[in-house]
C-alpha cells in the first residue's frame, strides 16, 4: 500500500461516492425478552395507556364523527335553546346541553374535533419538521449557519405571533390553509432554538467525533446520532405547542379571522360561548375541557415516549408502580 489512492479495497469508479446509507447491519436481538416492545411497555404504565386511549378516541372521533353527526350539529331547535347538560328530557343528543340556537352540544363538539385537528395537527407538524431540521442543521455546523439561523428566529419571535397572524389573515382570506401556514411559520423558532441547543451539545460528543473519524458525512451523522436523541424532546415540546396552536386558532376565530361559521372548532366554540358565560357555562366549558384533555393526554404520552425511547432510562418503566416514587429519588449511578 504505497498510497491511499492505490488502495486495493477501493474499486475503480469509487463506489464510496454513493451516498452513505443509515442502514447498519441488523442483528438478531438475542435479548428480546429483556427488551420488551414499546407496546408491551405502554401497557405497563397506566397513565400512558389512558393517554393513548384518549388520543385514539379523539382521532376516531375526528375521522368518523362528522359523517355520523354532521346533520345533527347543524340542526337548529329554537324551542330548546341553551338547555343545561346532563338531562335526557330532550333526547340523548342533548346530554351535553344545547347552544343558543338549540343545536346539540355533543354533535357540535364531535364535528369540531375534525376541524380543530385539521388545523392544529398540520400547523404543529409543519413547524416541528421545519424548525427541528433547521435547528439540528444549524447547531451541528455551528459558525455562520448558526448565527444567521438564530437571528432569523429572533426576528420571527420579536413579532407577537398573533399580531402577525391577524395582519396576514386580514390581508389574505382567512381560509384553513392560511391559518395553518401562518401558525406554523410563527412557531418554527420554538423548535429551531431547542433543536439547535441540543444539536450543538451533541455535535461535541465523543461518539459523534468517532463517526467523523470514519469520514461519515454530516447529513448521515445528523440522521444517525443527532435526530434520535433530539426527537423525544421535540415531541414533548410539540404536544405543548399543540395546546398553544389550538388556543391561537380560537383567538383568531374569536376575532373573526379564524375558522369561519358554519364550520366549527373547539376554539371557536369557546369563543362563541364566552358571551353566555354567566347564563350557559357549558357552552365554553365542554370545548375547553376537550382542549385540555387532548393536550394533557398528548403530553403524558410524549413524556412516556421520551423515557421509553431512551435506553438508559427505559428500565424505569419496567418497574412496578409502587416503587416508582422511590426510584425517582435514587441517583442513577448509585452503585458505580
Amino acid at each position: 500500500m504505497s498510497s491511499p489512492l492505490a488502495n486495493p479495497q477501493l474499486p475503480p469508479g469509487g463506489r464510496s461516492v454513493t451516498p452513505p446509507s443509515t442502514e447498519v447491519i441488523a442483528l438478531p436481538r438475542t435479548l428480546d425478552t429483556s427488551k420488551p416492545g414499546l407496546f408491551h411497555l405502554l401497557l405497563k404504565d397506566r397513565f400512558a395507556t389512558a393517554a393513548a386511549i384518549v388520543l385514539v378516541l379523539v382521532g376516531l372521533t375526528a375521522l368518523v364523527g362528522p359523517t355520523l353527526m354532521g346533520d345533527l350539529a347543524t340542526q337548529q331547535n329554537l324551542s330548546a335553546t341553551n338547555r343545561p347538560p346532563f338531562s335526557l328530557a330532550e333526547g340523548w343528543q342533548f346530554i351535553l346541553g344545547s347552544d343558543s340556537l338549540g343545536r346539540s352540544m355533543l354533535a357540535r363538539l364531535v364535528v369540531a374535533t375534525q376541524t380543530t385537528l385539521s388545523v392544529a395537527l398540520p400547523a404543529v407538524g409543519i413547524s416541528l419538521v421545519i424548525g427541528s431540521l433547521w435547528g439540528v442543521w444549524a447547531g451541528f455546523h455551528r459558525g455562520w449557519r448558526e448565527t444567521i439561523s438564530m437571528r432569523i428566529a429572533d426576528v420571527i419571535m420579536s413579532f407577537p405571533s398573533l399580531l402577525l397572524a391577524v395582519v396576514v389573515l386580514y390581508v389574505f382570506s382567512p381560509s384553513a390553509a392560511n391559518i395553518v401556514l401562518i401558525l406554523a411559520l410563527t412557531r418554527i423558532p420554538i423548535y429551531l432554538r431547542t433543536a439547535r441547543a441540543e444539536s450543538a451539545e451533541l455535535q461535541s460528543r465523543t461518539f459523534v467525533d468517532a463517526a467523523r473519524t470514519f469520514g461519515t458525512k454530516p447529513a448521515a451523522i445528523i440522521r444517525r446520532h443527532v435526530i434520535p436523541v433530539v426527537l423525544p424532546t421535540l415531541l414533548t415540546l410539540a404536544t405543548l405547542e399543540f395546546c398553544y396552536v389550538m388556543l391561537a386558532e380560537s383567538s383568531l376565530s374569536f376575532l373573526g379571522i379564524g375558522i369561519q361559521p358554519p364550520d366549527v372548532s373547539w376554539g371557536l366554540m369557546v369563543a362563541q360561548g364566552r358571551q353566555y358565560l354567566q347564563t350557559a357555562w357549558w357552552l365554553s366549558l365542554f370545548p375547553g375541557l376537550a382542549i385540555v384533555i387532548t393536550t394533557v393526554a398528548a403530553n403524558v404520552l410524549a413524556a412516556w415516549l421520551r423515557i421509553a425511547t431512551d435506553p438508559a432510562q427505559r428500565w424505569r418503566l419496567t418497574l412496578k408502580h409502587k416503587r416508582k416514587r422511590f426510584i425517582a429519588r435514587m441517583p442513577v449511578k448509585e452503585v458505580a
Binding site: L27, T309, A312
Partner: peptide, 27 residues
C-alpha cells in the same frame, strides 16, 4: 477514545456501533 461511556452511542447496539463505519465505507 478515552471515555468508554461517552464514546459509544447508547441508542445503538454493540453490533451496530462496530459496524457503523461500514455504512460510510460500503464497498
Amino acid at each position: 477514545f478515552q471515555d468508554p461511556f461517552a464514546s459509544l452511542n447508547a441508542r445503538m447496539t454493540a453490533g451496530e456501533i462496530v459496524s457503523e463505519p461500514w455504512a460510510t465505507h460500503r464497498d
